[in-house]
């Protein structure tokens, strides 16, 4: 594929693991592969010719299996499942498994599409395993045996280059390249292998309850006027001067100096 942005150095043995979860279509509510996790797998598939290890921790039943097969349909032959019930905390199971069979690069999505979707799992895993963590990864530029260079997605379409010491967990952002389509034949051919792990009950969730998302109330414009005149002015407000500086009868040079000075102060001028 043409979007293989970074290749592993052929002599280096960097094992790549991708953690995946079940996603949910935001409109139809149908279970599917999670968008960010699929992007993470896409990134891993672009890294090397050898196949990444794909791990899923969570419930496995008739409704979740087709969604999981979406990942197999991207071109991996095997998916490891750490089978857990819905009430279980998946972090102990994942950290236990990854402790026994470590991997120097772990990729995953930033936020799950089901459950709490707090985005804490990569952080908890990094803490439990002692790995370095980088969030909002958009592109992996280079991977060597000990280092990875990645681009981090910032707001406003900006990017930041970061060098991170392996082993590391990279949480992939929505700004990364879109995942490839699912091939149905590959999806049905792939293997789903269950691995026996410990299950830990998540106690904190006992007091929680979920409801369909309520529309957030629109913030009202609060007018703190003390007199009738102020209230009238606020109600009949028109675009009015905000007390900006107006430079009249200046030459073009002076105007340009003033503008460049403001741009420099605001930090948008790089030179």
């Amino acid at each position: 594929m043409s979007r293989n942005l970074a290749r592993l150095h052929s002599s280096d043995e960097v094992s790549v693991t991708v953690l995946v979860s079940i996603g949910k279509h935001p409109v139809t509510g149908r279970l599917r592969r999670a968008d960010q996790d699929a992007r993470a797998l896409e990134m891993a598939l672009g890294l090397s010719d050898s196949e990444p290890r794909v791990i899923y921790a969570g419930p496995l039943n008739d409704s979740t299996e087709p969604a999981l097969r979406g990942y197999l349909g991207m071109g991996v032959s095997e998916l490891k499942v750490l089978r857990q019930s819905e009430q279980n905390d998946i972090v102990p199971a994942l950290s236990g498994f990854l402790d026994n069979s470590p991997s120097s690069l772990i990729l995953c999505g930033s936020r799950a599409e089901l459950g709490e979707s707090s985005g804490l799992v990569p952080y908890q895993l990094a803490d439990a395993l002692g790995y370095t963590l980088v969030s909002n990864v958009a592109v992996i530029e280079e991977v060597t045996a000990t280092l990875a260079v990645v681009l981090q997605a910032l707001p406003r379409g900006q990017r930041r280059r970061i060098e991170v010491v392996l082993p590391a967990i990279l949480a992939v952002d929505t700004a990364s390249p879109v995942a490839r389509q699912v091939a149905y034949a590959k999806a049905s051919r792939g293997f789903i292998n269950c691995v026996v792990t410990d299950a830990a009950e998540d106690d904190a969730t006992e007091q929680w309850h979920y409801q369909p998302a309520r529309k957030r109330p629109k913030r009202l414009k609060i007018i703190k006027a003390t007199s009738a005149r102020d209230r009238f002015k606020a109600a009949a407000a028109k675009a009015e001067g905000t007390g900006g500086q107006v430079l009249t009868s200046v030459s073009a040079e002076e105007g340009a100096v003033a503008i460049l000075k403001v741009l420099k102060e605001e930090g948008v001028l790089k030179t």
């Binding site: 935001p26 799950a112 709490e116 929680w208 309850h209 979920y210 409801q211 369909p212 998302a213």
Partner: peptide
Amino acid sequence: ASGGTSDLY
């Protein structure tokens, strides 16, 4: 929660 589709109390 749930990727923006539900509210968690």
